[in-house]
């Protein structure tokens, strides 16, 4: 395998006594779409900023193309970033914003104007070049920010939650723009987000971070179906976690005993919400009993919330017709069951 484009080796970053990133090891490959995901304060943005040279690691090394970058100031790197706030220059016109990076590189007036116009065209912003930034819509600004970062033809683009300020329908559209762009250009995208749907929809690989450390790296499907820790399972969402002691293929848990394909000893299993079956009558095989709490309409179906007798919350994804069949009312008890073969055992 070719040498990774970026390598983090034992990178540590502290702000005073607060440790933002702990002994981080991470490879980023050429041409991949990598998402750094985690709750706020997990160190994902600090990691991205260190890559751009906006923060310096306290210890450890960051290399780009094999060259140690620790002491290279941001303006000597080629790591353009799309900011959460977009950080477009309000006193410059659209085309002047896009030209900025070329101007800083000493490229002549004519050439930089031509190259900027090419990118504005590509971003479907032709005719807007002399507008002021505050005369553009949210989606248009987003595309100006992208054009500004890409006009210098970098081999990697960093994105810091760039879609967080957009309306839901625009987010979906911009996701399409971003993935298409990344495939067309064939460059590396490093995308920071706290949104599971954004990361899973676009990224080739997802890095889940928590408390300054990497919790798990993998393809979206791998992480979704096979969370390696309780932290990941809970962060990824719509997962039910069952913990207990396994003996001879059966796990004893506070919610009941269920069959598990795991060796003897303590274990935690994850049952994804879309794999839980809800029924009024006790099904054959293992099941746990829980009281219906409420339902929530999500994009892909309806999530029903239950509470087990010991107070644990369970989620089950059902379709609209299933929900009406159940005629669930708050406080009613149901049986929750699943196929033991499609359960993920953590460890």
């Amino acid at each position: 395998m070719a040498e990774p484009l970026v390598q983090f080796r034992a990178v540590h970053k502290a702000f005073g006594t607060y440790v933002a990133v702990k002994s981080l090891d991470l490879d980023i490959h050429r041409g991949e779409f990598l998402a750094l995901m985690g709750p706020s304060g997990c160190g994902k943005t600090t990691t991205l900023r260190m890559l751009a040279g906006l923060e310096q690691p306290t210890s450890g090394a960051i290399t780009i193309e094999g060259k140690v970058m620790n002491d290279v100031p941001p303006h000597h790197r080629d790591t353009p970033l799309v900011w959460q706030s977009l950080a477009l220059f309000p006193f410059l016109s659209v085309v002047e914003n896009v030209e900025f990076g070329l101007r800083m590189r000493g490229i002549g007036t004519k050439e930089r104007r031509d190259r900027a116009m090419l990118w504005l065209d590509r971003m479907q912003l032709k005719g807007f070049e002399h507008r002021r930034i505050d005369q553009l819509s949210g989606g248009q600004r987003q595309r100006v920010a992208l054009a500004r970062s890409l006009v210098t033809e970098p081999q990697m683009l960093l994105l810091d939650e760039p879609l967080s300020a957009l309306d839901a329908h625009l987010v979906i559209r911009m996701q399409g723009v971003l993935t298409r762009l990344q495939k067309e250009l064939g460059i590396t995208f490093v995308y920071v987000t706290h949104s599971q749907s954004e990361a899973f929809a676009m990224a080739d690989r997802v890095v889940i971070m928590g408390h300054g450390q990497i919790e798990q790296i993998g393809r979206p499907q791998e992480i979704f179906r096979g969370p390696r820790s309780r932290f990941v399972a809970e962060f990824v969402g719509r997962n039910n976690i069952l913990a207990g002691q396994v003996q001879a293929g059966v796990m004893q848990s506070p919610q009941g005993s269920v069959p598990v394909g795991a060796p003897d000893g303590p274990a935690e299993i994850v049952v994804a919400a879309d794999r839980v079956t809800v029924s009024r009558d006790r099904p054959a095989g293992a099941a746990i009993r829980a009281a219906f709490l409420s339902e929530e309409f999500a994009g892909t179906g309806i999530i029903c919330y239950f509470e087990t007798p010991d107070g644990a919350e369970w989620k089950a994804q059902v379709s609209e017709s299933q929900l009406s069949d159940l005629q669930a009312e708050s406080g009613q008890e149901f049986w929750l069951s699943w196929d033991p073969a499609r359960v993920h055992v953590m460890g």
Binding site: V68, D71, V72
Partner: peptide, 8 residues
């Protein structure tokens, strides 16, 4: 290594 940024 360049450490000039500390003495900026």
């Amino acid at each position: 290594m360049i450490t000039s940024r500390k003495l900026d």
